[in-house]
Nucleic acid binder design. Sequence first.
DNA 1: CGTAAAGTTGATATTATTCAACGGAAGTGG
DNA 2: CCACTTCCGTTGAATAATATCAACTTTACG
Lengths: 250, 250
Amino acid sequence: MPQSRTASTHAHVKCGDCPIRHRAICARCEADELEVLNSIKYYRTFAPGETIVWAGEQFSFVASVVSGVATLTQTLEDGRRQVVGLLLPSDFIGRPGRHRSQFDVTAVSEVTLCCFRRDPFDEMLQRTPHIGERLLEMTLDELDAAREWMLILGRKNAREKIASLLVMIAHRDAALHMTRPSGEVSFELPLTREAMADYLGLTLETVSRQISAQRRDGVIELEGKRRVRVPDFAALVAETGDDSDGGWID
Amino acid sequence: MPQSRTASTHAHVKCGDCPIRHRAICARCEADELEVLNSIKYYRTFAPGETIVWAGEQFSFVASVVSGVATLTQTLEDGRRQVVGLLLPSDFIGRPGRHRSQFDVTAVSEVTLCCFRRDPFDEMLQRTPHIGERLLEMTLDELDAAREWMLILGRKNAREKIASLLVMIAHRDAALHMTRPSGEVSFELPLTREAMADYLGLTLETVSRQISAQRRDGVIELEGKRRVRVPDFAALVAETGDDSDGGWID
DNA sequence: CGTAAAGTTGATATTATTCAACGGAAGTGG
DNA sequence: CCACTTCCGTTGAATAATATCAACTTTACG
């Protein structure tokens, strides 16, 4: 049972030492508030491919992603699938007041969550304005990101979509280390071709072809199948079709 | 100056009599809180086509849409445009903490806004938990709607996109009258073919063709160019490609 | 009544999808 | 250790969907 083994490696992490401390729901909390959170949190780990929350089903917790990657997906009756959100470390799962998700939440890699049972969390939310404020801020950021993505889905061609996805992942990766990407950059690509296709509204074949094309053109290099090296980040950004840097302001 | 004339017809509306009272940012406010809002609010009206907020520019107010329709749009450097949000009566414009919008906000029809200068509003937000709670709830709803739209943009074909748009507008229209659409339904289509195209990630020609097709197939009827009659709402919903009713839960 | 804006329809071009074959890496069981 | 299978990814050829270009119609409005 690798889940519980991994969970235990995280179980003793104090909130003060938490890797996502400065970006997660608890980012604005004071020492005493962290103390309370620390006492009610628990870790859970999910294996790659495992479903964390089923669309429409009740779930009794909310959580922050500590490590790993998960997707929020929606499926049409005939099986067409759209990834509507990537959950990376520090992202939040669940919404106060609603006990069921509209979307499936699925672990892509091994995912560790910092969970809170719903009732204690809702209570904490009432008593701790810092959490509500941060949740509002994160939700507004996610809304901006979703709208950014609507432009990508609605108006960009396949090549621009791929470049946009890579730029977004590079940004998120850099943000965790409190930097911004520039010059030569390299990062882990945490998604399969199929998951990328489902995020970009393409087929996996088109994704594969466009990645090959960007590689042929020297915009990116692949180290193995999953690590991407970008010799010149500005050149990648130029491929997105956006002006400036794609609107990432954080 | 038709703006100011229209504005004055609204200027004396007490919050208690406001048509969007039960859905807007103030939905949860008590009588005394409404009294304060009432004293600091002011109305502003914009003509069709007028820009309410420019992307990237500072703006000094937040507002609720009282009547009319506005769009949130994003534009690529070569002019491709994507509508990333429809602002219908009761929707909120602006976000606390950020003084500039990432998106253009444009009046589609004549639009009347109930405005608050930023500073008094932010202060009110601090002091009145009901407003912050409602804002969080509305933002979470908008996030769900944006994600719903990502599925439409990424995975639906032109015919399904048109049906989805019509279903959404019918839902929003019904919600204002506190009902749900069913059986025979009719509503105003507040968008030009071009605006619909920009919302759905299509060209205006494709929108026109698909509307004609749905008309030929008896799914919809047009009364004039802008009023849509749907003889059987369930039949329209069946055209969206979703199961059930397209995920609208409100 | 005349003009501009919005909408429709047709012919053709382009892009991404679909269908299909194949290659390599990782894991499994004999 | 090797055959076998599965998963993931790549590439090619044919096809389908939507975009593009263009002409024309209808509606709204001064």
